[in-house]
Amino acid sequence: MEMVRNTSKNIKTPLLSGSLVFLIAAIAEIILGIFKIYADSKELEEHWVNAIPFPPGIFPALSIFIIGLVWLAGYFVCIRGQDAKGYLLVGTVIALGFILLFILILLTDVFNAYALKLEDYEDWTVLASLRWIIFLSPIPIFFAIKYRGFTFPGRRREHIKAK
């Protein structure tokens, strides 16, 4: 019992701060992403949005947003005194999944550009494929390590078992 109360209290602040960082980043990326689409569709190459080294995109931003929402929902569940470990776990797993995915995409882009020398990649630089969520990776990685006991199935089950 004791341990559980501790865990619940322990994850309240991390959940809130994690979700706020993600939500703010997501909203910023979405807004910039809309500017970017506008600039692209009007072919305004000189537009200030193109000066951002890491191009914003709406869909990648939505992934950050939803992860933020999951953690935020978990925070409110915590406040009601219920067990929010599931929220922390699911948000973290999705976040890590997407970070790995975007790193993978980055690597294949490198391959396409430098090994295959594809035409589409003539003006491409590594920066163009650095998705915002990659910069946010310290948060889910921190969660994963700190709460490993219930973040990764099968280990130290006492956290999961307790209620």
Binding site: S63, I66, A73, V77, D83, Y87, I94, G97, K161
Partner: peptide, 29 residues
């Protein structure tokens, strides 16, 4: 155990509001 890990995860992935966004996100990913 009263609540299993499966239950805890299901709370989130079958959540009233979050369930569908998560599904779409998984598909997009």
């Amino acid at each position: 155990t009263n609540v299993t890990r499966s239950d805890l995860i299901d709370q989130v992935v079958t959540h009233k509001w979050l369930g569908i966004p998560i599904f779409l996100l998984v598909m997009w990913g």
